[in-house]
Amino acid sequence: MKRYWQWILALGALLTFAGWQTPTAHAEGVGYTVSAKLPKNQDDKNVTYFALRVKPNQQEKLGVVISNQSKKSATFQYGVNQAITNNNGVIDYSNSNPKLDSSLKVGIKDVFNEQKLQKVTVPAKTSKTVYVTYKMPSKKIDGMILGGVYVKKMSGKEAKAKKGVTITNQFAYVIGVRLRESSVDVAPDMKLNEVRAG
């Protein structure tokens, strides 16, 4: 009989805690998608980013489809960013004006015409294709040029804090761009510049 009451008490406690209401945070949906219109010179058909085989002096427009899935018209910023390695050793495409290493001979900004962020407005529940254009240098390049087409939805109003702290989530998409003229891999030549406590 004693064990029966122990089970009843344990079950009652479990139901009490399960029914306890705790505040939950709901993430706002991104509301848009981005996809690449892959051209004929895509040399890897298994990926959804621009992995292109190019030639010296080649010029080409790359199309990116922005689909606004929300119920309101939205404005987007887009541009082409240089790929860099961040402090965690991970490739990063989000910085529009990164500090570049002196060993970089030809970067993504050297081959793409668009040097500033562009803007486009996409009506609700529709898609629009935007274009960025590259032109390869006349001299053949070994290795790869890496970057990314960066697309970010612009917020209509800045969030205003009334009580406490207001957190505004911002999302961005990046479609990678890899340009190379040959399949020969260039061996990395890593030089340790500085070691310090951080």
Results as ranks from 00 to 15, higher is better:
Met1Lys: 10
Arg3Thr: 09
Tyr4His: 07
Trp5Glu: 03
Gln6Asp: 07
Trp7Asp: 01
Trp7Thr: 06
Trp7Ile: 15
Ile8Leu: 12
Leu9Arg: 03
Leu9Ala: 15
Leu9Pro: 01
Ala10Gly: 12
Leu11Gln: 06
Gly12Ile: 06
Ala13Cys: 14
Leu14Ala: 12
Leu14Gly: 07
Leu15Tyr: 09
Leu15Gln: 04
Thr16Tyr: 15
Ala18Thr: 08
Gly19Glu: 05
Gln21Gly: 05
Thr22Gly: 10
Thr22Tyr: 04
Pro23Tyr: 04
His26Ile: 11
Gly29Thr: 10
Val30Ala: 02
Gly31Thr: 02
Val34Met: 07
Leu38Lys: 11
Gln42Met: 12
Asp43His: 00
Asp44Ile: 08
Lys45Asn: 06
Asn46Phe: 04
Asn46Pro: 01
Asn46His: 09
Val47His: 11
Thr48Met: 06
Thr48Arg: 10
Tyr49Asn: 10
Arg53Glu: 10
Val54Tyr: 00
Asn57Val: 01
Asn57His: 07
Gln58Glu: 15
Leu62Tyr: 00
Gly63Ala: 01
Ser67Trp: 14
Lys72Arg: 13
Lys72Glu: 15
Ser73Asn: 13
Ala74Arg: 14
Ala74Asn: 12
Thr75Arg: 12
Phe76Leu: 00
Phe76Tyr: 14
Phe76Asp: 00
Val80Gly: 01
Asn87Gly: 09
Asn87Phe: 14
Asn88Ile: 13
Gly89Asp: 11
Tyr93Thr: 06
Ser94Cys: 04
Asn95Ala: 05
Asn95Trp: 05
Asn97Lys: 13
Pro98Gly: 05
Lys99Met: 07
Lys99Trp: 13
Leu100Trp: 02
Leu100Ala: 09
Asp101Gly: 13
Ser103Asp: 07
Ser103Pro: 02
Gly107Glu: 12
Gly107Leu: 14
Phe112Arg: 15
Phe112Tyr: 04
Phe112Cys: 10
Gln118His: 09
Val120Arg: 01
Val120Ser: 03
Val120Glu: 02
Val120Met: 03
Ala124Gln: 11
Ala124Ser: 14
Lys125Leu: 11
Lys125Gln: 12
Ser127Asn: 09
Ser127Met: 07
Lys128Asn: 11
Thr129Trp: 04
Val130Lys: 12
Tyr131Val: 01
Pro137Ile: 05
Pro137Cys: 10
Ser138Pro: 01
Lys139Val: 09
Lys140Gln: 12
Ile141Glu: 11
Met144Gly: 08
Ile145Gln: 10
Leu146Pro: 01
Gly148Ile: 03
Val151His: 03
Lys152His: 02
Ser155Asn: 13
Ser155Met: 05
Ala159Leu: 04
Lys160Arg: 10
Ala161Lys: 03
Lys162Cys: 09
Gly164Asn: 07
Ile167Ala: 00
Thr168Glu: 13
Thr168Met: 13
Thr168Gly: 04
Asn169Ala: 14
Gln170Ile: 05
Phe171Trp: 12
Phe171Pro: 00
Phe171Tyr: 12
Ala172Cys: 07
Arg178Ile: 11
Arg178Pro: 02
Leu179Val: 01
Leu179Arg: 00
Ser183Phe: 01
Ser183Asp: 13
Ser183Asn: 12
Asp185Ser: 03
Val186Pro: 11
Val186Tyr: 08
Pro188Asp: 04
Met190Glu: 06
Lys191Tyr: 03
Lys191Gln: 14
Leu192Arg: 11
Asn193Tyr: 07
Val195Met: 08
Val195Gly: 03
